Computed example of a mutant assay.
Amino acid sequence: MFDIKSFYEARDVQDAVQALVKEPDAEVISGGTDVLIRIREGKDAGKALVSIHNIPELKGVRLLENGDLWIGAATSFSHITNDPLIQRLVPMLGEAVDMVGGPQIRNTGTIGGNICNGATSADSASTMWALDALILLSGPQGERTVPICEFYTGPGRTVREREEVCTGFIIRKENYEGWYGQYIKYGKRKAMEIATLGCAVRVKLSEDKRVIEDVRLGYGVAGPTPLRCRKAEEILKGAGVDDKEALEQFAKTALTEVNPRSSWRASREFRLQLIEELAKRALTESIRRAGGNCNA
């Protein structure tokens, strides 16, 4: 049994926002794969729930007129993985969310919940950081857009107000066009495992595929929140795809920008080893996917 004060099925986004304002202890629920676990464990017991799960305007993936990619917050992981636009434009995101839990979780859980629960271990988070995603929020004061790099404030905490509903995400055309990437998740098991570390790398190569014009490096579980290693990124800009020294420096510089902790899943020292090694592996695969010849 779940200790729930009340359950309200919102008709649309504004209806959900009004319900959250009306009920001071209400919480948004969509797939419920995180919220219901917290309630069962007693952390959020006795709260009212406002469901956005069946609001059509929050589901799906579409290309906007300006070429930006829109992803609805209530879109399930399996939908994202199998969506033709995701497969064509940002397959890395589809691959990342396909590593969440098992099939039942992926069919129910949503990308909005995965980002908004604030967990550094969220499989979509480091990839969304590497994509420079924008988060769309709707609340009593209207709508606002928050860059993902400004969204997290601490472990399990974000700038989203309790009365706000995450409606979707925007990936700008310039952040996916010409980019290729790889997400690597390390866990003790191959399936149904929370990430011990997640590493996302994206690259944009020169026309002749010999030079790294731009690169993004994102991590999950390398600090209290997901993060980008911007100093490491600068190391590689303009480097040759087969520049082994630059690749090594890229991975080592990342170590100066992270702050992993020891937990029952892994020690800080082991996570630091993973941070360096996965950066090199993900970069090598990203270059290969982009059409470059990386022999590092």
Rank of each mutant, 00 (worst) to 15 (best):
F7H: 14
W70L: 12
N293P: 00
D12K: 05
F151Y: 14
V211D: 01
R144C: 10
F270Q: 01
A200W: 00
C116H: 00
E41R: 14
Q18R: 13
R202L: 11
V258F: 05
D34A: 09
W264D: 02
T108C: 12
D123A: 08
P147G: 10
R38A: 08
L64F: 05
N82H: 13
A10W: 02
G31V: 03
L136S: 02
K188Q: 13
T153A: 06
T120E: 03
I171L: 13
R144A: 11
G156E: 04
L69E: 01
F151D: 01
R172V: 01
G139M: 08
K22L: 12
W129M: 15
N259I: 00
G292Q: 08
G154C: 11
L93P: 02
I71G: 03
K5S: 14
L227G: 01
I148Q: 03
I184A: 04
R162K: 13
R157W: 08
L58G: 03
G42I: 11
E27W: 06
R271D: 00
G154P: 05
R268Y: 08
T120W: 00
V146Y: 10
G118M: 07
T158F: 07
T284Q: 12
G292T: 05
T153W: 11
R62Y: 11
A122F: 07
I115K: 07
D34H: 13
R157V: 03
C199V: 14
G102N: 13
D12I: 04
F77S: 04
R289F: 06
I86S: 04
K43P: 00
C116A: 15
N117Q: 12
R261V: 15
F270K: 04
